[in-house]
């Protein structure tokens, strides 16, 4: 049973990470959710697996570890809040940027043709420290 749990956690992690590395926002959100499942199960399994042993006094002979359960319970709710927030960000981002790519540099090597109507501006690079240091004076 432990092996099955470990495999499930591994598969969920792998799928989550694969999706998080995608170029567009929606799969990334799905990946985050998947990773959330994996992490919750992982945390939960830190209390070890037990069957027929709910952490309710008087309802079972032995009790599963209640502490990871309490932690995971809040993690599930917070996970929802985070997912919701990220989703709203991508909706807002799509409205503003007119595309739903994680990166703004859609025309570069990794993606073939840009989606129609995409903005094509590149990410403005911050000035290099060297150029900021010169104070506009001629170099010696």
């Amino acid at each position: 049973m432990e092996l099955l749990m470990a495999v499930s956690i591994g598969v969920l992690t792998a799928c989550g990470i694969y999706l998080m590395l995608r170029a567009r926002t929606f799969p990334v959100v799905m990946g985050l959710m998947m990773l959330g499942y994996a992490v919750n199960l992982f945390l939960f399994s830190m209390g070890r697996l037990a069957t027929e042993a709910p952490a309710v006094i008087g309802r079972a002979e032995t009790h599963a570890d209640p502490l990871p359960q309490a932690l995971v319970l809040t993690a599930i709710v917070i996970g929802f809040a985070m997912t919701a927030y990220v989703v709203i960000l991508i909706i807002r981002g799509r409205k503003t940027l007119e595309h739903d790519y994680v990166d703004d540099r859609v025309n570069e090597r990794d993606h073939g043709v840009a989606e129609q109507g995409l903005s094509k501006r590149a990410v403005p690079m911050p000035p290099t420290p060297a150029s900021a240091e010169t104070d506009g004076e001629p170099r010696p």
Binding site: M5, V7, G10, V11, T13, A14, I17, S45
Partner: peptide
């Protein structure tokens, strides 16, 4: 990474 996390679990 998945395999690593599974092994850890």
């Amino acid at each position: 990474v998945g395999a690593g996390v599974a092994a850890l679990a």
